[in-house]
Every structure is written in C-alpha cells, then in structure tokens.
Write a protein that binds this DNA or RNA. Sequence first.
DNA 1: AAATTCTGCAACCGCCAGGGC
DNA 2: TGCCCTGGCGGTTGCAGAATT
Length: 200
Amino acid sequence: MARLGFSEQGWIKGPWTPEEDKLLTRYVSQYGEGRWSSVARSSGLNRSGKSCRLRWVNYLRPGLKRGHLTPQEEGIIIELHALWGNKWSTIARYLPGRTDNEIKNYWRTHFKKAGKPCEKQEKKKNLSQKQHIEEGQNSGNEGDSMNDPQGNKQETVITYPTVVVDNQFLPTMYQDITSCSDIIAIDDYLWGGGLWNFDV
DNA sequence: AAATTCTGCAACCGCCAGGGC
DNA sequence: TGCCCTGGCGGTTGCAGAATT
C-alpha cells in the first residue's frame, strides 16, 4: 500500500492522506464529478486524474457501504458473475453502495482462490475435516455434510460457487428470480431506470 | 515470543473506447 | 479521417494486520 513516490509526470503516488481526501471531496462537491484531469490540476492535488477518480469512486463517494458484503449481496454477485463473468463494473451497478473494485477484491479472495488452495490451507482443511469426522463420530451427528450416511469420509472440496441463490436473502425485486434469464428479464427494468438511477 | 504465512484491500498499470479537434 | 486526450475498466501489485506455527 505504501507506495509513496512520484510518477514520471510528477504526480504523487501511493496512499491518500486525509488532507488530500478533504481537498478532493471539497472540489467534487463544489464542481461535480468528471473532468478528472482538471480536478487534479485545479484542486491543488498533485495527483493524476485517474488517481483522483479512483479515490473518489472507490472510497470517497457518498453512499458507499463499508465492511463485509451481506449474504444477499454475495448471492447477487455469484449470480451476476455466472451471467457476465468479470464485468465488475456492471455487477457493481446492481449493488448500490459497492464498488467494482470491492466486488473484484471480494471475488478474488473468496472464490478465485478456491481453485487452488495452498498447502497450508489444505492442511487446515484436512485438520478441520478430521475434527468434523471426530465430532461426527462422538456425537453421532447424522446430518453432518462432511460424511455420507454410510460414514464414509467425503472430501471437502471448495468449489466454484454454483448459481444457487437463496431467495430469502435477496432484495424484494430479486425474490422472483429463479434463473439467470430472470436477471436478464429484470435487466430492462433496471437499465430503464426503474429502480436505481446510477447517475445520481 | 518470534517468525512465518495468509487475508483483505487500497492503489497502480495498461489497454481500450469515445469524443473533440 | 486520423490523431490525441480523457475516462473507464479489468488485472495486478504490495502493504498492514491477523492468524498460525
């Protein structure tokens, strides 16, 4: 993170300071978004336009949610990713208050890594498997998903998430969704400005 | 308690598309 | 019509703190 330095153009690089945040916020609230290169020049920030835009979009913009994604949001991400792939900005439009960067990071850390768990994770996994099995044996827990009814050990596989979204977690508008095509169906509604006006 | 490894996330980079001249 | 500039997007990097050994 601390990548303090200067670009070839002399722009400051690295983490933003609270003073810079204040300057950018004040400037954008006064003059609005857009024209990022002029924001960079006029606001007194010695930052590139790209950097200003990124900072604003991902961190300073009002209405941004911080913290962990909710199960609803997670479900939406999974569903939409299955539909569109790595179209993070598109997916982000369906999650008000979340940024494409945040969603992208979330996906990478939670799902992408599932493909090839590292050795240590594997060890941890095996350990918890063992514990699960022992618990199952001790308690005689028959509902344990780690074991089949015959008591055979089943491999714990972190799989790429399937497109199954528990409707109870979804916002009202999504609760009728049963498949990806339903999302397409509501797409027109969304894009027609029916629900969110993302320009605001 | 120290060293090592993992996780989360802010920020940068490079590419591409669109608009203006 | 072609060039340049700018904004937007997806991919990647690297650090801090947490968790584990």
